[in-house]
């Protein structure tokens, strides 16, 4: 187990991200929903730099009790990271692909200690 320095905690506020290199691979670290999330920066679709993508809440439909469609809204809980190559979306907390749960991101542990963020490889 190796800990790799990612950033000073103060430099990684909510919504911010940083990328580190380890043995030729990039690992992206994002702070979102007050937690740190680290993923291999390779999308399971065609290999895109998923950690460079937009953070955006899941879009959901509003269906009334009578089953009629009433529009769309952003989820207040589920946050996604979107791969910028083609738009595959992944739940930031589980790494699971929103459109096909059989796919997911490769995740890494993170440690925050003494005002610094590390990823564990």
């Amino acid at each position: 187990m190796t800990e790799i320095f990612v950033a000073r905690s103060a430099d990684l506020p909510e919504g911010a991200r940083n990328t580190v290199e380890y043995e030729g691979r990039q690992i992206g670290v994002v702070r979102a929903k007050d937690k740190l999330h680290a993923f291999l920066n390779i999308c399971p679709h065609q290999g895109g730099p998923v950690c460079d993508g937009l953070l955006i809440h899941r879009v959901e439909e509003i269906i009334a009790p009578d089953k009629t469609y009433q529009g769309m809204r952003f989820s207040e809980t589920d946050l996604h990271i979107v791969c910028p190559w083609h738009g595959w979306e992944f739940n930031i907390e589980t790494g699971k692909c929103a459109g096909d749960g059989k796919h997911g991101l490769k995740r890494f542990k993170t440690v925050e200690r003494d005002g610094a963020v590390y990823v564990v490889v």
Binding site: I42, C43, N91, K96, G104, K106
Partner: peptide, 13 residues
């Protein structure tokens, strides 16, 4: 070579 993206290990949620 570097990474074979199609054979990368996928961590289940």
């Amino acid at each position: 070579g570097m990474v074979d993206t199609f054979k990368q290990q996928v961590t289940p949620a």
